[in-house]
């Protein structure tokens, strides 16, 4: 794998995380616990689709086959998506969704901070753009986790449950494969992000009185296209029109 091909694949990974999260957040549309939060989640979803779009645009340019960002977003099969497993997990209740976003946005914040220093200028630029939004996502989800953790007995229980269920997907975020190895020097080794991420998460969780579960068996594979069963359904729905009318322009 040469650098260009690796970078193409890396952009897919970044784009796919955003696409899948955007899709999951959009499921909240008209289902939020209060109108303000309905709108906030729609807004986060919009940010994620925007980020997916510019990551895919860059990927399409690197690939140089004249494909569009939509070809990339809509016309691949399940095993060709490289998003982290946590992003595709179903929304669950509001605490579950917020926990998912806390864990992910803290990761993305550290990742984009490091990528904004990349010597691939375009990747650095895109990361700066994404970082601005993701900082807000982190603030939004961390404030909710604290509110829910310290709110009522029920909300604390639901929040703790969410972390217990989601923790097994966190190591997957820091996995590296051949793509990362090829890009050493352009991107940071994700393992190096882990301590900073852990600290960020612990600060929020401690404030919220939520405990990190111990001895959890970690599930991994998203970056290699080995997903949970949930992804296929999400794609099925998302790709419906593009698959049903392959010759149509929208």
């Amino acid at each position: 794998m040469d650098t260009k091909e690796a970078l193409y694949n890396y952009c897919l990974r970044l784009g796919d995380n955003n696409l899948v999260l955007g899709q999951r957040l959009a499921e909240w549309c008209s289902n939020g616990p209060i109108l303000e939060e309905d709108l906030a989640m729609t807004n986060l979803s919009l940010d994620h689709f925007g980020q997916a779009e510019f990551m895919y645009e860059y990927a399409a340019e690197l690939e140089g086959k004249g494909r569009t960002c939509d070809d990339i977003a809509f016309k691949r099969n399940e095993r060709e998506y490289f998003n982290a497993l946590i992003t595709e997990q179903p929304n669950g209740d509001f605490a579950f969704t917020m926990m998912k976003h806390l864990l992910f946005s803290a990761f993305a914040q550290h990742l984009y901070e490091s990528l904004s220093l990349s010597n691939d200028k375009r990747l650095a630029e895109l990361s700066v753009r994404a970082l601005k939004e993701i900082k807000y996502h982190f603030r939004h989800s961390s404030e909710w986790i604290v509110r829910l953790g310290k709110g009522t007995q029920e909300s604390a229980m639901r929040t703790q449950y969410a972390l217990n269920e989601l923790w097994m997907f966190t190591a997957d975020l820091f996995e590296i494969n051949k793509i990362d190895e090829t890009l050493i020097g352009i991107i940071v080794d994700s393992n190096e992000l882990f301590p900073a991420w852990k600290k960020t998460i612990e600060t929020v969780l401690n404030t919220a009185n939520i405990k990190i579960p111990e001895k959890v068996h970690m599930l991994k594979g998203g970056y290699n296209g080995k997903h949970t069963e949930h992804l296929g359904h999400l794609l099925c729905e998302m790709q419906y029109l593009q698959r049903a009318y392959p010759n149509a322009k929208w």
């Binding site: 955007g22 779009e53 939509d70 929208w250």
Partner: peptide, 16 residues
């Protein structure tokens, strides 16, 4: 969830 392009998704979400 079924909007056929990224642009269409963004526009529809913004409208909603």
């Amino acid at each position: 969830l079924r909007a056929p392009t990224l642009r269409a998704k963004k526009i529809l979400l913004a409208k909603i």
